[in-house]
Simulated scan of single mutants.
Amino acid sequence: MNSTAKLLDVVALTVDLPQYNLWRGQVGTVVEILANGTAFEVEFSDRNGRTYESLGLRPEQIMVLHFEPTSPDKKRCNSRSISSPTIQMQRTDEHRQCIAKGNCRR
């Protein structure tokens, strides 16, 4: 059910976290991968883009949301635009490789 979260993935909580006023189904963004993927820093923002909570979560506490059909034989292209020029170049290279293999679903 849960696929491995990647940097900048949109995720939803699968559990209630009342101590943070966060509830199952709330949507956040993975902003950091921690402990070699055994935890993720997830940022929760309001409709105006203001962060109201950011905390480390375990993979079983989140699920990756998909906004388009997925196919098990195609790898997801992680070449989304982001502000860092270095990361943009890395993502552009990944996107070129993804296109060359015929796997881009962006």
Rank of each mutant, 00 (worst) to 15 (best):
Asp46Tyr: 07
Glu94Ser: 10
Glu43Asp: 06
Arg58Asp: 09
Cys77Glu: 02
Thr14Pro: 08
Phe44Lys: 01
Cys104Leu: 10
Phe40Thr: 00
Thr38Phe: 11
Ser45Phe: 06
Gln97Ala: 15
Leu8Glu: 09
Asp46Ile: 04
Ala100Arg: 12
Pro59Thr: 09
Leu7Met: 10
Val42Pro: 08
Val15Ala: 15
His66Gln: 04
Glu60Pro: 06
Ile82Met: 11
Glu53Asn: 07
Pro69Cys: 02
Arg24Ile: 09
Cys98Ser: 13
Asn78Val: 00
Leu22Cys: 03
Ser81Asp: 10
Ser83Arg: 07
Ile87Tyr: 12
Ser71Met: 08
Val31Met: 10
Ile87Ser: 08
Arg80Gln: 01
Leu13Trp: 03
Ile82Asp: 09
Val42Met: 00
Asp16Met: 03
Lys6Met: 10
Val30Phe: 03
Leu13Ser: 02
Gly49Thr: 08
Ala5Arg: 03
Cys77Val: 01
Gly102Asn: 14
Cys104Ala: 11
Leu55Cys: 01
Phe44Asp: 01
Ser81Thr: 07
Pro59Ala: 09
Arg106Tyr: 15
His95Thr: 14
Pro59Asp: 05
Asn103Ser: 11
Gly28Arg: 00
Thr51Cys: 01
Leu17Ser: 11
Gly56Thr: 14
Val64Asp: 00
Ser83Tyr: 07
Leu7Lys: 09
Ser71Thr: 08
Thr92Ser: 13
Leu65Thr: 06
Trp23Gln: 04
Ser45Gly: 00
Met1Leu: 08
Leu7Glu: 03
Lys6Pro: 00
Gly56Tyr: 07
Arg96Phe: 15
Gly56Leu: 04
His95Asp: 06
Asp16Thr: 04
Ala5Lys: 03
Asp73Gln: 05
Arg80His: 09
Thr38Arg: 14
Ala39Thr: 01
Glu60Asn: 13
Val10Tyr: 01
Thr70Ser: 06
Ala35Val: 04
Ile99Ser: 06
Lys101Ile: 02
Asn48Pro: 00
Arg96Lys: 15
Ser3His: 03
Leu13Gln: 00
Val10Ser: 04
Arg105Ala: 11
Ser81Trp: 12
Val27Gly: 02
Pro59Gly: 09
Pro18Asn: 07
Gln19Ile: 09
Tyr52Pro: 03
Ser83His: 07
Leu34Pro: 00
Asn2Glu: 02
Cys98Phe: 12
Tyr20Val: 02
Gly25Pro: 00
Ile99Cys: 10
Ile82Leu: 11
Lys101Arg: 15
Lys101Thr: 08
Ala100Ser: 13
Gln26Val: 05
Ile33Gly: 01
Phe40Glu: 03
Ser81Leu: 12
Val30His: 01
Asn21Arg: 15
Cys98Glu: 10
Arg58Met: 14
Asp73Trp: 07
Leu7Trp: 07
Leu7Tyr: 09
Arg91Gly: 02
Trp23Tyr: 12
Gln61Ala: 10
Thr4Leu: 15
Asp16Tyr: 04
Arg105Met: 12
Leu17Asn: 13
Asp9Tyr: 05
Asp46Gln: 02
Leu65Trp: 05
Pro18Phe: 12
Thr4Pro: 00
Gly37Leu: 02
Gln19Leu: 15
Ser45Arg: 10
Lys101Glu: 13
Arg106Leu: 15
Lys101Ala: 14
Val30Asp: 04
Asn103Arg: 11
Pro85Lys: 14
Phe40Pro: 05
Leu7His: 08
Gln19His: 12
Val11Gly: 06
Pro18Gly: 05
Phe67Trp: 04
Ile62Asp: 05
Arg76Val: 06
Pro18Met: 13
